[in-house]
């Protein structure tokens, strides 16, 4: 990978480690300051191009760019020329003409960020494309795990829920296995993608059996808006078999942590008591998201061509 961040699969271990170390440097640089801003990207323009609703990712990227003093232009599909029928290419050419140094894109079509790189001179950052990837989410998850557990290599991580529709799961599988973690996917058979047997992961249908053997359990949101067919009989049955409630959480070993990329549906995949428990790092994930995105923007936008070699 070089100028763009399109996929966690493009990141080798050294580059991914550099991003996490830089994020930690950002945290140190931001601590105890009177001015909560760094001048690093002054005069650069970061465009947030969001074709799908996403409050937390958009706000996180916006905060990251602003803390580095970049100018931020937010372009959401609703109420813009996109809703009047402008094509992705024409939008890209418009952004190109405006001189965007980086474009952060979220799109419902897998591969849209990759296509954008053909029309833009600036860096493209994938903020979630269809069911493909969401690399900065995986990076912030890895950062959160590393900060809490001190390492990633050899950790046992369970990713639980709607793996089929989850770009978060895909990016996390790539990144966590790159770091040498052992990943187990836990989901009903209908919510696992075809070809999952070729992934470098274990697969289980039995959450209760997996929980005592993991250091990290990552709950995925049930993406009801993506479900045209019925993948499970009822929300209640899903919640009973794959939801993380207090009784299930008690099966986790000593220091194990609970993660959720958000937005979470309390009472569905995760019980409110679990989300608010001491094992939960869900709030840390949000705070770390800004740091990791600062690191990514810094590494992509410094130098003529970017330096995430």
């Amino acid at each position: 990978m070089n100028r763009h961040l399109l996929s966690a699969a493009d990141l080798d271990r050294d580059t991914a480690t550099l991003i996490l170390d830089t994020a930690r440097g950002m945290a140190a640089a931001m601590t105890g300051r009177e001015v909560r801003k760094l001048p690093t990207l002054r005069g650069r323009t970061v465009v947030n191009l969001f074709y799908e609703d996403s409050t937390r990712t958009r706000v996180s990227f916006e905060a990251a760019a602003k803390r580095l003093s970049a100018d931020v232009v937010t372009f959401s599909a609703k109420g813009s020329s996109v809703s009047k029928g402008e094509s992705l290419k024409d939008t890209a050419l418009t952004l190109q003409a405006m001189g965007a140094d980086a474009v952060v894109v979220r799109h419902s079509a897998s591969g849209a960020p990759h296509r954008l790189t053909e029309w833009l001179d600036g860096s493209v950052v994938n903020a979630g494309d269809g069911t493909h990837e969401h690399p900065t989410q995986a990076l912030l998850d890895a950062y959160t795990i590393r900060e809490r557990m001190g390492r990633l290599e050899g950790l046992r991580v369970a990713i639980v829920g709607d793996v089929l529709h989850s770009r978060v799961a895909r990016s996390n599988v790539h990144l966590l296995t790159t770091f040498g973690a052992d990943v187990t996917l836990v989901a009903p058979p209908t919510l696992l993608p075809v070809g999952v047997t070729d992934w470098p992961v274990d697969v289980s249908y039995d959450l209760d059996g997996v929980l005592p053997k993991v250091d990290v359990v990552m709950m995925l949101r049930v993406q009801r808006e993506r479900m045209n067919d019925s993948f499970f009989p009822s929300a209640r049955e899903y919640s009973r078999r794959y939801g993380l409630d207090t009784a299930r959480m008690a099966r986790l070993p000593g220091e194990a942590i609970v993660m959720h990329p958000g937005p979470m549906i309390r009472g569905m995949e995760i019980a409110a008591e679990v989300a608010d428990s001491a094992r939960s790092v869900i709030v840390d994930q949000v705070a770390n998201g800004v740091l990791v995105r600062m690191a990514v923007l810094y590494l992509l936008l410094s130098g003529e061509k970017g330096s995430m070699a």
């Binding site: 170390d21 440097g25 130098g303």
Partner: peptide
């Protein structure tokens, strides 16, 4: 006090790894 993020040559020389800041 790390000064990497304040350098004037980031655009020319590219990103460098950050040093520690500990005030």
């Amino acid at each position: 006090l790390d000064v990497t993020l304040y350098r004037d040559d980031l655009r020319i020389r590219g990103a460098r790894a950050l040093g520690p800041t500990d005030v």
